[in-house]
Design a binder for these strands. Sequence first.
DNA 1: CTAGGGTTAG
Length: 542
Amino acid sequence: MPPPTVPFFLTSTTLAAAAAKPQRPGPPSPPAQQQQPREARDGSRDACASYTARMRLNPQLALRLFDHLLRSGADPDHVAYALALGRCARGRDRRAAAQLHSHAAKRGAASHRRVCNGLIHAYAVCGSLLDARKVFDRGHEGDAVAWNSLLRGYAAAGDVNALREFFVGMQARDTVSWNTIIAWCVENGEYEEAIAVFREMLASMECLPDRVTLVSVISAITYLGALAQGLWAHAYVCRKGIEVEERLSSALINMYSKCGCIEGAVHVFENLGAQMNVDTWNAMLAGFTANGCSEKALELFARMEITGLVPNKITFNTVLNACSHGGFVEEGMGCFERMTKVYGIEPDIAHYGCMVDLFCRAGLFDKAEKMIQMMPMKPDAAVWKALVGACKTHRNFELGRKAGHMLIEAAPNDHAGSIEIDGVIHEFISGDKSHSSKEDIYEMLSEMCQQLKVAGYVPDTSHVLLDIDDEDVKESSLALHSEKLAIAFGLISTAPGTPIRIAKNLRRRIMLLRGFLESSALTSTRWPAADSSYPAPVDNKL
DNA sequence: CTAGGGTTAG
């Protein structure tokens, strides 16, 4: 891993300060009011138990069952409240949570630890941080679940300062608390920060990372395309004996795939053992697709059907993508039909989008248009994007213009290549010559290309779609790539040293990485095993 | 049973 940077979320100093002065943030709380639990009659208890059993089986009916429970005259216990509140949290139903709250208060159940935790959680995820806080402040000192539920509320509210302050002052800071922060960073696109906080977690030695930690960390690494860190994280998992269950293996497969290291993904996938499900298979299918191994994806899909695993919507989306990338029109049409007829999956807009993409890439514009006409829903931006993209490579400008207008109509704020300078969005498409500063942009562009060539960059034309035969056309089309245009504009429009952020494009990343991978020793990497001693730059004490 | 996780691809 590169040398640690100072994380904006927290620093060693803030943590050290917290350690020196442990205190609970916010106003001091009044002593918890201990209510004597009522003597419940046996009959009521039995009735309640039968309701809670059903609530457990059918969480989506939990609130209705709770209602039945009340009407039956039985007395809800803390389990019934917890289950019902859990449902409120899942459904973001603040009103129901508040009703349960007042109900519990009347019955003297509102001070029960489990009920309190359920209330804090429900209020927190519903965005009622103040209500959550009130319950918390009258609640149970040092209950880890209560602290973490509230922490989650601060994370959801999005106020970084409040979140940091609460986290730093936490009494019961444990693995879940750290995981909450790391996941929050990932959710908010702060991937480097997520890794910095993970480092901080290791250095604090407060608690050990678990598989949830690693899922978030590996996810951050994936977004960064940082293979070296991904290898380290994988080795860490093996070394610490962290269980590689379905989600963690999916994260690993995904990480290797997105880092352009398909061999690593295959290695993880083939060593799954019993810990596999549709999602791990989906991850592997997507990995093959993203790395240009469409046939492998289709082979794997066939294997999946033989194995007896039931594919889901995402499986088909991925497989259809593989078909369109590989130009397997027949196979794609076959899959689409099998999806509905054999598996009874109703195609959603994304599936139709894949089919449009499939036909477009093959240059079958009439079939694509027919598909758009027969979709039962309004075509979304993805559909128009596929059409625009294909029109660009197939030089079908007339249809491209129409589709472009539809795209802007469908997603006015979703521009493929745009850059924001002083609050103004500038949009670029490949080969664009319409921008007002075009002279300057193109001058900057040729300078960029020159500097890139000096740095050893050779345009890789093998990824430009098939039917442009002329090498020169291909190369210049790459050179005028929309993102490069945007960067060139960024360079001439900002002061030196201003960071320029262009939305990440993982496929491009992979392309750039692949050339590097093939020529490096990484292709002969030995994958981390259970007794792996892969160098551990951060973790030397745990 | 109450706290933390990922997955389509353009």
